[in-house]
């Protein structure tokens, strides 16, 4: 039962940790791109393309965590089954 409890915690917290890093990285990237665009508005298009490619690479890391978390959710038992087991344990 502890195994499933840890699994359930991991699905939520793992994605949260990944999202923290991704958010910090993307914020830094967007801030620098905005600064560059404000200084040189004529090269805004090139900066924007490069920024979007970079954001895609950063975001991919969180997406890996999302996919893993969905795979772990698939391994969790149904709530009814857990309640049934708990009833037997309580007896």
């Amino acid at each position: 039962m502890l195994y499933f409890a840890l699994l359930a915690i991991a699905t939520g917290i793992g994605l949260g940790i990944a999202a923290v890093g991704c958010g910090l990285g993307q914020g830094k990237a967007i801030a620098s791109a905005m600064e560059g665009m404000a200084r040189q508005p004529e090269s805004a298009g090139a900066i924007q393309t490069a920024m979007i490619i970079g954001l895609a690479f950063i975001e991919a890391l969180t997406i890996y965590a999302l996919v893993i978390s969905f795979m772990l959710i698939g391994k969790l038992p149904e709530t009814e089954t857990v309640l049934e087991v708990l009833k037997h344990v309580a007896k």
Binding site: E59, A60, I63, Y64, L66, V67, F70
Partner: peptide, 16 residues
């Protein structure tokens, strides 16, 4: 791997 996982993860997450 990263190309396919990125597209799949984004669209699946959004649809779910």
């Amino acid at each position: 791997l990263s190309l396919s996982m990125r597209l799949f993860g984004n669209i699946m997450g959004e649809d779910t």
